[in-house]
Simulated assay, not measured.
Amino acid sequence: MSERRGVTPAQTVGPYLHIGLVWPDGRYVVPEGTPDGFWIRGQIFDGTGAPVVDALVESWQADPDGRFDHPDDPRGARPATVPGFRGFGRAETDAHGRYALHTLRPGPLPTPEGETEAPHLNLSVFGRGLLHRLVTRIYFPDEPANATDPVLRSVDPSRRDTLVARPSADGYQFDIRLQGEHETVFFAV
């Protein structure tokens, strides 16, 4: 008869992000010089307001037509019409907790219920001390469809601003607060 053993305890992510998960071109969802390309830059902060220097941000987004080149797109996978668009980005934080992604504005997305989601990026945050990735979204501040987006409408109105980027000189600023005052809204997925 075999001996029964307990469950192995969960392990946190890292501190190995910079060893195995960094891609030299990971921050480029589209190549630099792509027409209408812009940067999303931000910082990640812990619950005390200190920058998180060993985190990784992954983005996943639709193309400017609101399509995915993926079999899960209910309208069918279709390559993007923008050369070099890959829909996925990966950026590590630097010594000041800063990350940057070069991308394009995605198009709106239909939902299975017949509604429309406003243009947004899905983000996953990985870091030391996290047992699982944290998932959030970036919405654009000048987007009229934000008012009718079913996901954004489901968020407490007093916290929606934690999901909306701010304009910056070369694109948008989106800071992520893991805990504490003005904590970013994260989704259970």
Rank of each mutant, 00 (worst) to 15 (best):
M1A: 15
S2V: 14
S2N: 13
S2H: 13
E3F: 07
E3R: 03
P9L: 13
P9W: 02
Q11A: 14
V13K: 07
V13G: 01
P15Q: 12
Y16S: 08
Y16W: 14
Y16R: 09
L17F: 14
L17V: 14
G20Y: 15
V22E: 12
V22W: 04
W23C: 04
G26D: 09
G26M: 07
G26T: 08
G26F: 00
Y28K: 01
Y28M: 05
E32H: 08
E32L: 02
T34V: 04
P35N: 09
D36M: 05
D36G: 03
D36H: 13
F38P: 01
W39L: 07
G42V: 03
I44E: 01
F45G: 11
D46Q: 00
G47C: 06
G49N: 04
V53H: 14
V53Q: 15
A55F: 02
A55G: 15
A55N: 02
S59Q: 11
S59C: 14
S59V: 09
W60L: 15
D63A: 12
P64C: 10
P64S: 09
P64V: 11
G66K: 04
F68Y: 15
D69I: 05
H70I: 11
D72Q: 14
D73V: 05
G76R: 05
G76D: 08
A77M: 07
A77Y: 10
P79W: 10
T81N: 11
V82P: 01
P83S: 13
G84T: 03
G84I: 03
G84E: 00
G89I: 03
G89M: 06
A91M: 05
E92Q: 13
T93I: 05
D94E: 06
A95C: 00
H96Y: 12
R98G: 11
A100K: 10
T103R: 02
T103A: 09
L104W: 00
L104K: 00
P106V: 11
P106K: 04
P108A: 15
P108Y: 01
P110Q: 08
T111D: 13
E113K: 12
G114H: 01
E117F: 02
A118E: 03
A118I: 05
L123V: 07
V125F: 07
R128W: 03
G129W: 01
L130H: 10
L131Y: 13
H132C: 00
R133Y: 05
R133G: 10
V135N: 13
V135H: 14
T136V: 10
I138S: 05
P141M: 13
E143K: 08
P144E: 08
A145C: 01
N146A: 09
A147H: 07
P150Y: 02
V151Y: 10
L152D: 11
L152V: 08
L152I: 05
V155P: 04
T162A: 09
L163V: 07
R166W: 08
R166P: 05
P167C: 05
S168I: 06
D170H: 10
G171M: 03
G171S: 07
Q173F: 05
Q173M: 11
D175T: 10
R177N: 07
R177A: 06
R177I: 02
E183S: 13
F186H: 02
V189Q: 09
